[in-house]
Amino acid sequence: MKITLFIPCFVNTCFPQAGISMVQIFERLGHTVDYREQVVCCGQPAFNSGYWDEARLVDERTLGLLADTDAVVSASGSCGAMLKVFYPQLFDGRPQADAARALAAKCFEFSDFLVTKLGVTDLGARFPGKVTFHDGCHGLRELGVKSQPRKLLEKVRDLELVEMKEAESCCGFGGTFAAKFPMISTAMGEVKCASALETGADFIVSNDSSCLMQIAGLLDRQGRKVRTLHIAEVLASR
């Protein structure tokens, strides 16, 4: 199968290893990987701020660039939700409505794609360490991704998975929210970090680098040694 990666802007610039790991994983499974460097952003900041016209300036282009794909797999649950759930709303009643629905149908979050679409859970990975998994809210609630990443992590050799208290509770990132209401966002992040630290895990893993950016930002400031990793990085480890 030809798999087109959707690499969001912040993964491209700050967390490229998540995308590189996805390439490795899909190629090891024998699939052809495709990436369109013209596709940069899902348009979520403008959309979430209420500026839907401005979001459409970006998203019309993204929609067109991804039209002739077989399957689009997002490195972020949040951007995946934007493509899969919110594009059809954004283009509802517009000429691109059909295209948006067509894209939604073939768009997946990474761990969901592996488990549900490709039917694999054991990727032959080895990762020594104690890991706790943070559910990105958009992946969890917009896309229904909950068991998939856990099924994948359970198959990783030498990896000990420990659940944190209130794993489903938001990390407080929320895109522009983190900058518009920094103190609320920080308080939410502190609660999240405390739950993660309580597990004694060495690594906080998520299917969303944006959540990890928030969590790592707080932990680094606190001088904690716990590391954050995208799930693809763990699954690509040998």
């Binding site: 690499i7 700050c14 967390f15 995308g19 590189i20 460097e37 103190m183 680094d220």
Partner: peptide
């Protein structure tokens, strides 16, 4: 707004686009 309480992520030496 971010750095008051949090560290900023670093722009990677090689972006995914460059890698590709």
């Amino acid at each position: 707004a971010w750095t008051k309480t949090r560290e900023l992520p670093q722009v990677a030496p090689q972006s995914f686009r460059d890698y590709w």
